[in-house]
C-alpha cells in the first residue's frame, strides 16, 4: 500500500479517484436526480481530498499517538459524513441546487484577480493595483473615468504611505525597481 503514498503511486491513486468521482457526478447529472448534482460536488471533492491525504499518511511513522493519528481520525469522519451527504443527493433528501448565477461574469472576476496576482510579481504592486482597480470597476459597469482614476490613484497613495512607508512592508516593485 505504501506505493500509493508518494510519487507515481500517489499520482495514479489521485487520477483514479478523480475519474471515479467524475463518473459518479456525471451519472448523477444525467439521472432523474440531476437537480441535486451540484450538491454532490463538495462531498465528492472532500472524499477525493481525504483519500489522497490518507494515502500520504501511509508513509508517516507508525507509533502510538503518532503524526498519522489525528489526520486519519478527521479523514475517517470526513469520508463518512461526505458519503452520507452523497447518499442524500442520490435520494433527493437535500436542498436542490441553487439557481445558476452569472458564472461567466464571476469567471472574469476570478480571472482578473489571478491576473492581478501575476502582475504584482512582474509589474510591481503599485502599477498592477491601479490597473486592477480600474479594470474591475469598469467590469462592474462603472463608467465615471475621473472617479476610477481617483480611486486607483488614491489606493496606490494610501498603500504606499501606510504599508510601504509606515508599516515597512516590502511590496514587490516589479520592473520599476530597476529605475529606482
Amino acid at each position: 500500500m505504501e506505493y500509493f503514498s508518494e510519487g507515481t503511486g500517489l499520482f495514479t491513486w489521485t487520477i483514479a479517484l478523480v475519474l471515479i468521482s467524475s463518473g459518479i457526478y456525471t451519472g448523477l447529472r444525467y439521472s432523474r436526480m440531476k437537480d441535486y448534482s451540484g450538491q454532490a460536488i463538495i462531498p465528492l471533492i472532500m472524499i477525493v481530498f481525504s483519500l489522497v491525504l490518507w494515502a500520504v499518511t501511509l508513509d508517516f511513522p507508525t507509533e502510538d499517538a503518532g503524526p498519522a493519528l489525528i489526520p486519519r481520525l478527521w479523514i475517517f469522519w470526513l469520508i463518512l459524513l461526505s458519503t452520507v451527504l452523497l447518499f442524500f443527493c442520490f435520494t433527493g433528501k437535500i436542498d436542490k441546487d441553487p439557481k445558476r448565477g452569472r458564472i461567466g461574469f464571476l469567471g472574469i472576476g476570478v480571472g482578473l484577480i489571478v491576473a492581478y496576482y501575476f502582475a504584482i510579481e512582474h509589474l510591481g504592486y503599485f502599477i498592477s493595483s491601479f490597473l486592477f482597480l480600474a479594470v474591475t470597476m469598469y467590469m462592474l459597469s462603472y463608467r465615471k473615468p475621473i472617479t476610477i482614476l481617483l480611486v486607483g490613484t488614491g489606493w496606490v497613495l494610501f498603500s504606499y504611505l501606510v504599508f510601504y512607508k509606515l508599516l515597512y512592508i516590502q511590496l514587490p516593485l516589479g520592473f520599476i525597481e530597476d529605475f529606482i
Binding site: 484577480i113 474591475t136 480611486v151
Partner: peptide, 8 residues
C-alpha cells in the same frame, strides 16, 4: 467601487 477596493 466597494468590491474592487475590498479585493485590493
Amino acid at each position: 467601487i466597494m468590491y474592487p477596493v475590498i479585493l485590493a
